[in-house]
Amino acid sequence: MNSILEIENLCKYYGKPENQTKALDGVTFQVMPGEFLGIMGSSGSGKSTLLNCIATVIQPTGGKIIMGRREIQSLKGSDLAEYRGKHIGYLFQNFELLDNLTGRENILLPLSLHNIPKSESDKRITELASYLEITDVLDKFPSQMAGGQKQRVAAARAMILNPSIILADEPTGALDSKNAKLLMEKLLGLNQEYNATILMVTHDSNAASYCKRILFIQDGVIFHELRRNIPEESQQAFYERILKVMAQLGGGTANVL
C-alpha cells in the first residue's frame, strides 16, 4: 500500500548559524492511509513545528514533504489553497471558530470557499453533525457553545471536505477530561468508520492512547516509536507503555533525587 504522506529529512532551523535553534533536525517517517498516528514530545521538542510544516503554516528549511505523490513545497497559488482546504483538515488547540458565524456557517465555510454545491454540503453537514453530536448547536454562535461543542464543531469543519489527512494540534489541550474523552472517541470513530487518516500532536498520554502508532520527538529528532498490538493490547496497556516512554523523555531515573 502506498503511503499518504511522506516526510524526508525535514529540517527547520531558526536564527543565525552561530546561534541556531534546530526545531526539526532531519525527521523522516511515513503515514499510511487510514492510520491514526500520534506525535508526542515535551514542550519545545518540535512536534508543533512538524505539524505546521506539513500544514504549510511555516516553510521548512530543508527536506521534503510529499502528499499524494506531490511535493507540497512546490505548490503555489490555487494549488496551495486547494491543498490547504481540500487535502488537509486542521484542528487547532483553541478551536479557532469564527465568532460572527454560527456553527453551521463555520462548518460550511470551507465548502463555500471551494465552490461545493449546496445540496451536497447539506447532506454532509447533517451526517457529520449527527455523528459528532452537535446538531443542537449548529445554529448557535461560538460564544453560546461549551468548549467541547466548539471543538467538535471544529472537527466537523476539518472533516467536511473529506481531506486526505486530518492534522490535530493538541486537540484536547483546552478541554476538560470528560469532553477530551468524548472528542477522542469521536476522532477514533472517524478513523475506524470513515477511514479518516489522522495525525495528532499531543503531550497528553491519555489522548495518545487512542492512536495506533506513536512517534516520540525530542530535540527535533524522532527517537522512539510505539505500535499498539491490536487487538491483543488493550488501550490501558498501551497507555502504560506510553507513560514509560514519557518518563524516559523526562530523563528517567536520572533526574530523581
Partner: peptide
C-alpha cells in the same frame, strides 16, 4: 489571526 485561519481553510490570498 483571523486572516491566518481563512488562509488555513484554503482561501486564496487574492480572495
Amino acid at each position: 489571526h483571523e486572516f491566518g485561519i481563512y488562509l488555513m481553510m484554503g482561501m486564496r490570498r487574492s480572495k
